[in-house]
Design a protein around this nucleic acid. Structure first.
Lengths: 225, 225
DNA sequence: CCGGTCGGTTACAAAGTGGTTATAGACCCG
DNA sequence: CGGGTCTATAACCACTTTGTAACCGACCGG
């Protein structure tokens, strides 16, 4: 599930991005209207979080541009007490809005509700990078055009995390937190095991990993070339 | 377009009713939880506006009861600063909310947006996918040109949910919520049973399910090819 | 060399999941 | 009331997934 975050406020952009990444979204960001439209075309996100108050009030224009080419759900961010803006946004085709300030928890709940309504609750648009695609709702992965590989819950989370950060090394600690949620930091054995099991499933020769490579002393990374 | 307004505050109820009548809605009203459910069943409204703060906090219960029998859009009314309630409501299946106080104009805009979103999935037509058709009034299903199969209430809801998401996996949790309303998540046994019984009815060989397939660790899906 | 850590591997125990059968309570209707 | 259907609960089995432990070889600093 890919989400595009459009906001000129760098801090807020990063905050939202972090929260949604943690929640399992693949995040792309834009800082202004023109680049938002460009990135929208390039990345084809499944949902857009769009700040309405940007230099040039271009939030409306972005919403309009998006609506002109797609019906993806759009969540508007507004400041309170600008009801007129709000109505305008909704009539322009935005699907929901959130008034600042809001907690990440709220944003997440609303975003989920929005996606549920749009009937795309982790539907289509499987997470993908290179030759690997991940179908989260079916708990399967596919390499190239091969047969789908069934993954367990934990394997899914591991691959999801690596896939959303494909090409970059993900530290063992981050993986531990993402997969198990908080544990004694000594629990590397679990990760060791999980990596081993996932390799058995996705590597042609698990002894010489091609995709799931080890970054000694740091963590693991997914090579997608 | 029929709207059910549920609010214990008589003035607000009348105000909203007036505004929506002016806007061309057919309005029915209820003043408390129990009568709301009764009127919902009797009137089958197309959309519900539901106050969350009613004696006995029964707004949640009403939302739950409505979700248990239908997927009509529900707009919640809340007072500001009760974020927990809000999240609870959205997770219970409400589709949108509005914080008091609000102007009739806002309510109308939001309601229209809500209906537009839900509009594409308005399901007057007999639910069908592939060779399977579901007759909700008759509580029967039909496969190909075969004889109608009588279904129980729960079997109907299960098949309905799978049918509206045919081809995609539906998580066990979503099924539990849709079929039973809200339960301890530990109640997988019920779902297990229900799936088993439905398979007995619709599969030619229940041991090798053709339509109702399980996605291990994820949920179930209906294959319609 | 030696002991230590690190990552990979093997083996096994513990916990969980899904299918099935059986049984008892709930509910409905004549 | 009685008989039927529907639903909830439990128990069992086979199988999968996950957690834990031990062993191995590579590497590294003393």
């Amino acid at each position: 599930m890919k989400v595009l975050i459009v906001d000129d406020d760098r801090d807020l952009r990063e905050l939202i991005g972090f929260a949604l990444t943690q929640a399992g979204f693949l995040v792309v960001k834009a800082a202004d209207g023109p680049s938002a439209v460009r990135i929208f075309d390039a990345e084809a996100p499944d949902v857009v979080v769009l700040d309405i108050n940007m230099p040039g009030a271009s939030g409306f224009q972005v919403c309009e541009a998006i609506r002109a080419r797609s019906s993806v759900p759009v969540m508007m961010l507004t400041v309170r007490s600008e009801e007129e803006d709000l109505i305008k946004a909704l009539e322009l085709g935005a699907d929901d809005y959130l008034t600042k300030p809001f907690s990440p928890k709220t944003l997440l709940a609303r975003l989920k509700a929005l996606l549920r309504r749009a009937g795309m609750e982790s539907a289509a648009a499987p997470l993908a990078a290179g030759r690997i695609t991940l179908n989260i709702e079916e708990h399967t992965a596919q390499i190239g055009g091969g047969a789908p590989i069934r993954l367990t819950k934990l394997e899914l989370r591991l691959l999801q995390m690596l896939l959303t950060n494909s090409g970059r090394t993900v530290s063992s600690d981050r993986l531990l937190v993402h997969i198990w949620g908080h544990r004694n930091s000594g629990d590397r054995q679990l990760l060791k095991q999980l990596v081993h099991r996932l390799r058995q499933k996705i590597e042609t020769d698990p002894a010489i990993p091609h995709y799931l490579q080890t970054a000694a002393g740091a963590g693991y990374k997914l090579v997608v070339d």
